[in-house]
């Protein structure tokens, strides 16, 4: 090879290096991972936060004993919150409303949307149980006045009442209201409102941190090639593709 071509070749290499991203080998990356300081008690807190927020009251109690981690909320309030949630999930909406008010009457007073959704759920349950007359009466007396205050409430009310127009609700366009997912949606709305009223975050921190991991890896992708964790459920490091 002539000297000329060697120089050209080297220049091309330098150019390629400048344009390409920094490459971090597995060995270097593992060293960086090792240098990170994570305290066990912080991980325990993160797990406790998950148990508490998701309502695993027995597990939280056991975890307090087994790991010495203090929950960031009075565990007794979890039981009440879960009872409300469960009542909605089982379709006992009246029972749920009563329980929420026992817990803290301000929750529904200050949250008209949540109250409307609970009443709507109550209407759905009446229709599900074939209590047509009762359902109509309830819609007119309890829900219609609220619809006048708020356009979106009115639309939802109309959508719900439309259930009555179909003999076979399983095939009708608004049939999804009768689905279990509607109950779960309402239940998680109540759950969130109760947590908020207790000055607690309505979502556990763990999922946010996992999302942050996805985001942080994407961000770093722009600047470097490094071992990634692509499958969160196995936490397996995968070698960089160069």
């Amino acid at each position: 090879m002539s000297l000329f071509w060697i120089v050209v070749h080297q220049l091309a290499e330098i150019e390629a290096m400048a344009a390409s991203k920094k490459v971090i080998t597995r060995e270097d990356w593992e060293k960086k991972l090792k240098d990170v300081k994570i305290k066990k008690e912080d991980m325990n807190k993160l797990v406790m936060n998950f148990l508490v927020t998701e309502g695993y009251v027995d597990a939280a109690e056991k975890f307090r004993k087994e790991s010495g981690t203090e929950p960031d909320i009075d565990l007794a309030t979890i039981t009440d919150r879960m009872a409300v949630k469960k009542a909605v999930q089982c379709g006992n909406v009246e029972d749920a409303i009563e329980k929420v008010n026992d817990l803290n009457p301000e929750i529904l007073d200050t949250n008209p949307q949540l109250f409307f959704h609970l009443q709507q759920q109550r209407l759905i349950e009446l229709i599900r149980n074939g209590k047509v007359e009762e359902a109509l009466e309830f819609a007119q007396e309890e829900l219609a006045p609220r619809g006048e205050e708020n356009q979106s409430f009115l639309e939802e009310l109309e959508r719900t009442v439309a259930l009555l127009a179909f003999e076979d609700v399983s095939n009708c366009p608004v049939g999804e209201l009768l689905d279990i997912s509607q109950r779960l949606k309402t239940a998680s709305e109540v759950n969130a409102a109760i947590l908020t009223s207790q000055s607690h975050e309505k979502d556990p921190k763990l999922p946010s941190l996992l999302k942050m991991l996805i985001w942080a890896q994407n961000q770093l992708d722009e600047k470097a090639a490094y071992p990634r964790i692509n499958d969160l459920s196995t936490a397996m490091l995968e070698d960089p593709t160069v």
Partner: peptide, 9 residues
Amino acid sequence: RLLRQLTAC
């Protein structure tokens, strides 16, 4: 491992 990866990234 996930938290270490997050911090390192």
